[in-house]
Amino acid sequence: MKRVGVIGGGQLAWMMGGAAKKLGVELIIQTPSNQDPAVSIAQDNVLAAVDDAQATKLLAAKSDVITFENEFVNLEALSLLAKQGICFRPRLEALSPLLDKYHQRCYLRDLGLPVPQFFAVEPKENLTSKIADLGFPLVLKSRRHGYDGQGTFIIHDLETLQQKLAMNQTIPTASQSLFLVEEFVPFERELAVIAARSVEGEVVIYPVVETQQEQQVCRRVIAPADITPHQAAETEAIAHTLLNSLQAVGVFGIELFLTPAGKVLVNEIAPRTHNSGHFSLDACETSQFEQHLRAVCGLPLGNPQLQCATAVMINLLGYENSHSDYQDKRQKLAQIPQAHVHWYNKSQSRPGRKLGHVTVLLENHNPALAAEIAHSVESIWY
């Protein structure tokens, strides 16, 4: 039996549980709390912060290979373990250019992939001339540790930008954020694609999806996205180029913008399974979680294609501070035809926290019906 160590114990690791059973894989989890979702599906766990390299050494002693549920790790410390022969998949060199969003932007640009205009914010730099090239509004992003909209700010004028940067300067140096500035892309819609690459270099790509965000947090995913064959091919080519350049092993999520002119731009890369791929648990022969385990274990990759005409995935986000398990609402959601409810068993709800998701499968491609179903789910939940 292959033993896979997973750094991180949230819902992304928890959703590997079913695939691990199917493949005969044993999961060992490194996570800071025994209340985290993945603890319940692991044969063993190491209770320590995900950036604790000493804990990862313990994890390695129990594992054949180590993978990542999230990217908030200490690469420098892990590289010392890699030199001792510990196997990480994806390899650390594939993560290195992606964890800092400015470095990620530079890497994508240097590969020739389409990205928004951007620049790094240097300490005490006069930004006036650089901003003149972009204009307002613009996007200010923390270079590290941002997710679900955290660390991302839409800025509408120079005064607000200066205030934001000045506030950052007032906190202790160790806690200050490094920032980059990007042009604001007035996109027609947001897209995403899940891609996986095997040890042998085979790449498989899931259908391109549309993601719908509110307050920069994903609310809904529609699979497949209503885009042209050329735009789908362009997106797939981006995924091939990126994963092959990184020599990645495992699943990566790629977020994109589709501009009103029909141009595809890369927004961000997640070097792991991704919220935009949750539909695959119910709608595809091989889920993104099974695909990731197949890749990191050196198994043949599975079929990523949809087994239905359309899938609608709706995140169940916290809207209050509570310890409820919302059993009544979940039962109502489960009564929707072809609905599959996934509950992450988190002990605490708070506004914006991802508590679960619902995927509804449709036999026909009907965007209006997909929107209606999403509204029905949200009217029950919220």
Rank of each mutant, 00 (worst) to 15 (best):
N126L: 11
V121M: 01
T152A: 10
R91H: 07
E190R: 03
G135M: 09
E71T: 03
H103W: 14
D110Q: 11
C87G: 03
D157F: 12
N126S: 10
G149N: 10
A82P: 07
A132S: 14
F119Q: 06
G149W: 09
F72L: 05
G146V: 00
T56I: 13
S96Y: 08
R143M: 02
N126T: 10
L161N: 04
D148I: 10
N70E: 05
F184K: 04
S142V: 04
R144F: 11
P186R: 15
V181Y: 05
L127Y: 05
R105Q: 08
E69M: 07
L134W: 12
V73P: 01
A132D: 10
T173S: 13
R89V: 04
N168K: 07
C106S: 12
L134H: 13
Q84Y: 14
A60P: 11
A174W: 15
L111V: 12
L127G: 05
F119K: 05
R89Y: 08
T67S: 06
L178W: 08
A60H: 06
L95F: 08
V115E: 01
Q117F: 10
Q117M: 14
P97I: 00
A94G: 03
S177E: 11
R89S: 04
L80E: 15
S175T: 11
Q162L: 09
F179P: 02
L138Y: 11
L95N: 04
R189Y: 06
V185P: 02
F179M: 00
H156P: 11
F136L: 08
N126Y: 07
E159I: 09
T67G: 03
R91E: 05
V121H: 02
T152S: 07
S129N: 15
P116M: 09
A55S: 10
P97R: 00
F88I: 04
L78E: 01
E71S: 02
R91T: 00
E93A: 13
T170K: 07
Q117W: 11
I86N: 11
L58M: 13
P186D: 15
I86Q: 09
E188A: 15
I66G: 00
S129G: 12
